[in-house]
Computed example of a mutant assay.
Amino acid sequence: MRDTTRRPLLLALLVVSALLAVWLVARAADTGPTGGTDATQRHTASASASASPSVSGTDPVSGLPWIAESALPREARDTLALIAAGGPFPYPRNDNQTFQNREGLLPQERRGYYKEFTVETPGEDDRGPRRIVTGAGGEKYWTEDHYDSFERIREGT
Results as ranks from 00 to 15, higher is better:
residue 20 L to K: 01
residue 152 R to M: 06
residue 67 I to N: 04
residue 132 I to F: 01
residue 3 D to A: 07
residue 80 L to N: 06
residue 126 D to A: 07
residue 26 A to Y: 07
residue 62 S to D: 08
residue 21 A to V: 15
residue 51 A to F: 00
residue 50 S to N: 01
residue 74 R to L: 12
residue 22 V to R: 04
residue 128 G to N: 10
residue 145 D to C: 00
residue 136 A to E: 14
residue 16 V to W: 08
residue 134 T to I: 04
residue 109 E to W: 09
residue 1 M to I: 12
residue 84 A to I: 06
residue 113 Y to R: 07
residue 45 A to N: 12
residue 15 V to D: 03
residue 121 T to Y: 08
residue 15 V to I: 15
residue 155 E to N: 06
residue 15 V to G: 05
residue 151 E to P: 00
residue 123 G to V: 10
residue 85 A to K: 08
residue 136 A to C: 02
residue 80 L to Q: 11
residue 135 G to F: 14
residue 154 R to K: 15
residue 156 G to L: 07
residue 145 D to F: 00
residue 140 K to W: 09
residue 157 T to G: 08
residue 109 E to A: 15
residue 117 F to I: 01
residue 127 R to Y: 02
residue 34 T to F: 00
residue 1 M to H: 13
residue 82 L to E: 14
residue 117 F to E: 02
residue 35 G to Y: 01
residue 70 S to G: 03
residue 27 R to Y: 04
residue 40 T to G: 05
residue 39 A to T: 15
residue 62 S to I: 09
residue 57 G to K: 09
residue 36 G to A: 11
residue 102 R to G: 15
residue 133 V to Q: 04
residue 106 L to T: 10
residue 77 R to H: 02
residue 131 R to F: 09
residue 86 G to V: 02
residue 82 L to W: 03
residue 105 L to T: 03
residue 107 P to G: 03
residue 36 G to S: 10
residue 125 D to A: 08
residue 137 G to F: 04
residue 118 T to F: 05
residue 110 R to C: 00
residue 80 L to G: 11
residue 9 L to F: 09
residue 11 L to P: 00
residue 134 T to C: 11
residue 23 W to E: 13
residue 111 R to W: 07
residue 76 A to M: 15
residue 26 A to Q: 10
residue 68 A to K: 07
residue 130 R to D: 06
residue 53 P to A: 14
residue 132 I to R: 00
residue 66 W to E: 01
residue 10 L to V: 10
residue 126 D to E: 04
residue 48 S to V: 13
residue 151 E to H: 08
residue 67 I to K: 03
residue 100 Q to E: 14
residue 138 G to I: 09
residue 126 D to P: 00
residue 108 Q to P: 06
residue 145 D to W: 01
residue 109 E to V: 09
residue 29 A to V: 03
residue 101 N to K: 07
residue 66 W to Q: 00
residue 59 D to T: 11
residue 27 R to T: 04
residue 56 S to D: 15
residue 4 T to S: 15
residue 150 F to K: 02
residue 15 V to P: 04
residue 101 N to F: 06
residue 74 R to E: 15
residue 57 G to T: 10
residue 20 L to H: 13
residue 94 N to C: 03
residue 103 E to Q: 13
residue 86 G to A: 02
residue 137 G to H: 01
residue 114 Y to T: 08
residue 40 T to H: 11
residue 111 R to F: 10
residue 80 L to W: 09
residue 105 L to W: 01
residue 47 A to P: 00
residue 120 E to C: 06
residue 35 G to S: 10
residue 138 G to N: 07
residue 43 H to P: 00
residue 79 T to K: 11
residue 67 I to Q: 04
residue 34 T to D: 05
residue 21 A to F: 12
residue 85 A to S: 13
residue 10 L to H: 10
residue 45 A to L: 10
residue 37 T to D: 15
residue 78 D to A: 12
residue 83 I to M: 04
residue 67 I to C: 05
residue 86 G to S: 02
residue 11 L to E: 11
residue 80 L to D: 12
residue 22 V to E: 02
residue 60 P to W: 12
residue 129 P to H: 05
residue 153 I to A: 07
residue 4 T to V: 12
residue 86 G to N: 01
residue 125 D to C: 01
residue 147 Y to D: 11
